[in-house]
């Protein structure tokens, strides 16, 4: 079991990484032109009220003190108060995290459901028409920008066919499902294209590998050879590719949530930037960073579980 030992010391290794990220985020957020209090008060702001609110949020302190508060809060598990919403940023994120989780989780699941069978079929029928079709589709899937694909899907399924809502999230489970299908599809089509290409190549290599030949020489049926020997070996490189893509996807939700008007973290981030709500932008960006780090960590756990040779 000692190949899982990295689970214990990896968080300690990651601490400096996260602190580095926090500095970058802090500096970037402060360098957004404009001032949060002026943005909040607009024309109503008197010099006194501006000063008062600046003091209230600690914005009159020197930058390094502000950063220190930010870090101190993070260690206490807090993220400060939103200047705009006047509530705890953590609480605010709590109300917005579900749609984003559902968006990312659902898209990844859907992408896998599309990619694994397609890659398997393309590899098995290599060079036949079905392989060419799948490869063409995955090449096409890579070429389309996500927002363009989203708009095309909306035009077709929501406006032409009236099957799905144009935008929003809904309240009941059924409503949410109905609203999320197009966003899921948008992300999954692009993601599954990458995964299919990669997985097809690994499956092809493994189908002709020595270990698969040896498994056939033991009299195992092709289905057993495929699912128990070819697939696990093919998945190892794909897991890492998936982790990298989920990392991209987490920040990519900003675009998807905007197009589909999904009230998630991405929307919160955009609104935070427009209103110069430092605390919110910091908090959301930090959450995205932690999520990305966590996904990569989970990918390592999965890789070690599939492939006992990997040493971390």
């Amino acid at each position: 079991m000692h190949r899982y030992r990295f689970i214990l010391y990896r968080p300690i290794q990651l601490l400096p990484v996260l602190i580095g990220i926090s500095i970058i985020i802090f500096v970037l957020v402060r360098s957004i032109p404009g001032d949060p209090v002026r943005a909040l008060l607009g024309a109503r702001g008197t010099p006194e009220s501006i000063l008062r609110i600046r003091a209230q949020f600690g914005l009159d302190e020197p930058l390094w003190t502000q950063y220190f508060y930010f870090i101190e809060n993070l260690f206490k598990g807090e993220m400060g108060r939103s200047i705009l919403y006047k509530i705890d940023v953590l609480e605010l994120i709590g109300t917005r995290i579900e749609p984003t989780l559902v968006l990312v989780g659902g898209s990844v699941l859907l992408a896998l459901l599309i990619a694994v069978p397609l890659a398997a079929i393309a590899a098995k029928y290599r060079g036949r028409p079905v392989d060419h079709i799948i490869r063409l589709m995955s090449t096409a899937g890579l070429g389309f920008p996500a927002f363009w694909l989203a708009i095309m899907l909306i035009l077709l399924f929501s406006i032409q066919l009236d099957l799905f809502p144009v935008a929003g999230y809904g309240k009941t489970f059924g409503e949410k499902l109905h609203h999320m299908i197009l966003p899921w599809l948008t992300v999954a089509l692009a993601l599954s294209a990458v995964l299919t290409r990669n997985l097809r190549a690994s499956i092809l290599a493994e189908l002709h590998s020595d270990q698969a030949t040896a498994a056939r020489a033991r009299g195992l049926p092709e289905s057993v050879v495929f699912w128990r020997h070819v697939m696990p070996n093919s998945l190892v490189p794909t897991v890492n590719l998936l982790a990298i893509n989920i990392g991209w996807l987490i920040s990519g939700t900003v675009v998807i949530e905007s197009v589909f008007a999904i009230p998630g973290m991405g929307q919160l981030l955009i609104r935070g930037i427009f209103t110069r709500d430092y605390m919110v932008v910091q908090g959301v960006a930090m959450t995205f960073a932690c999520a990305t780090v966590f996904v990569n960590f989970m990918a390592d756990v999965l890789t070690v579980t599939i492939d006992p040779r990997v040493k971390l």
Binding site: A214, R218, P308
Partner: peptide, 30 residues
């Protein structure tokens, strides 16, 4: 017949054994 009547071994055991399945797993599977 394969495995049951005729077994086969190869030159390079490292590549002809499944690296991600235990030795016991590969034996019991057959």
């Amino acid at each position: 017949v394969r495995g049951g009547d005729i077994g086969m071994i190869f030159q390079n055991p490292s590549s002809h054994l499944d690296p991600v399945m235990s030795i016991g797993g590969q034996i019991t599977e057959s």
